[in-house]
Design a protein around this nucleic acid. Structure first.
Lengths: 260, 260
DNA sequence: CCCTCTTTTTTCGTGAAGCGAAACACGGTC
DNA sequence: GACCGTGTTTCGCTTCACGAAAAAAGAGGG
């Protein structure tokens, strides 16, 4: 494989990845010597990589047979990536359609601990200063994205959410009761609204994206200055829900349960 | 994570795996500084790991945005593993049932280049000396496993098989014509037979395992001394086909195409 | 348009630590 | 019981990974 030329390559890492790729592409669990012969590396070196990768959980080491195979941690990461990858790629077209139809900013976000994380953002209007960026976090309680996801989370998981009710504007939801009401409303309605609770003058309407098991793995939202938003709430909610349904349909049938 | 105590751990590899896990578990493509902050590692170090992992194809480096994400090579390996893992785990019970029902050795194998590779083996009779082991290879043309798979491969792929017709016993198929006939017979019949062509005195009957797209990703076989085999060909073929169908049904709906 | 701040890339000398030969231990097999 | 073919362990020698700090490349902002 390419190893010269990549001037910043860290050799142990590059070689360990060769081992990784070999083991992962075998249908059976492999032995130390098998890897050594296949990759023509010193026994000690391969031994150490196998140990290291096993310790990291990417491999599982079957002690009684002295065989190494792909580990559960790797499979978790792979499942997570499969879902997220599919989410982003199928959402792409839908986001484009939405931003094209409304000429307002459209966001895609997932839940991560007590925050929502922006995964994709399409700005209709590049002059806005405050827009979020990919990877940025916002609280659950101050965004329509967060409320939309919370609304469709299993009850016990909503309880467990570490919401801190940190105020973002003077309108930010400040206590559990109000939050609860907003979330219940969102569940009943099928979409969440947020008016200047995260950023003054900006309103948002958010819709969850459910996976095949009804679990809200993400949310899409449309955000606009609140005067403009008033006139298009209904149309936007409808369009967002349609987009969400289409994204759900294209998602792989994989459950994430505790994987996040 | 555990890093002390693992006396053979190679630090660069272990740390690179932390980076790997972080990137893979984010829903969005990440930036260098984001990883640095999240993992609290020196910037240069993380930079090098990201470069190394990108060079290995496990990550993709989005140059214009300077973001790193999971790469296609990783996804390939993940798909491959998902299929193989599922294959082995769902085959397990079926193999047990077969060996219990017939008291003969049962094998599970996949195709790898010009060989079949044993993935699981259940020996009814531990006194046999010649049995294959997990990971061992045998030629396609001398085994019922190979012929069963070849019989259900797309035509152009059968042509491309680098079969060398190396003789294993005096009965081994020695030319393309005969091989062709055996394979065609197997396709017609739904199972392949092999009588002393791989090992004197041992006969085998093999059935392909198709994935959801009809592609033969593996094969199961029952092998027995040929005198015993005579009396149970029909029953065995039936049982193997039943097992194969059940395994297929439990396989994930993922296509492997050129991934092997 | 230039200036400034942020983020990524490059350089470089030091010394920690990865390397691999070879020796050891272990479990089968003849 | 001696002999493979395994997987571990040790050990001394460099190698090569490390991270500070500087340079380059972008992104805003005045």
């Amino acid at each position: 494989m390419s190893k010269a030329g990549d001037q910043y390559a860290v050799l142990p890492v590059a070689k360990a990845m060769q081992v990784f790729a070999y083991v992962a592409s075998q249908a059976h669990d492999v032995t130390l010597t098998e890897v050594v012969q296949a990759l023509d590396m010193p026994k000690t070196t391969v031994f150490r990589y196998l140990q290291t990768l096993s310790a990291a959980g990417l491999f599982s080491h079957n002690i009684e047979q002295d065989r190494y195979g792909v580990g559960e941690r790797f499979r978790e990461l792979a499942r997570l990536d499969a879902v997220y990858h599919s989410l982003r790629s199928t959402a792409q077209g839908e986001l484009d359609k939405l931003v094209g139809g409304f000429r307002e900013t459209v966001n895609l976000a997932v839940l991560s601990r007590s925050d929502i994380v922006y995964v994709d953002i399409r700005e209709a209007n590049r002059s806005q200063r405050f827009q979020a960026r990919i990877g940025h976090r916002n609280p659950i309680h101050s965004t329509s994205l967060g409320k939309a996801i919370a609304a469709f989370l299993p009850e016990e998981q909503v309880q467990g959410l570490p919401v801190n009710f940190e105020p973002r504007t003077y309108r930010t939801v400040a206590d559990a009761r109000t939050f609860r009401r907003h979330v219940d409303d969102a569940r009943r309605r099928g979409y969440a609204i947020e008016i200047g609770e995260n950023e003054d003058g900006i309103a948002c309407i958010g819709v969850p994206i459910l996976d095949g098991y009804g679990y809200p793995i993400a949310a899409v939202s449309l955000s606009a200055p609140d005067n403009r938003m008033k006139t298009l709430v209904d149309r936007a909610a409808e369009a967002l829900q349609e987009a969400s349904r289409r994204i759900t349909a294209a998602l792989p049938q994989i459950s994430l349960r505790g994987g996040v």
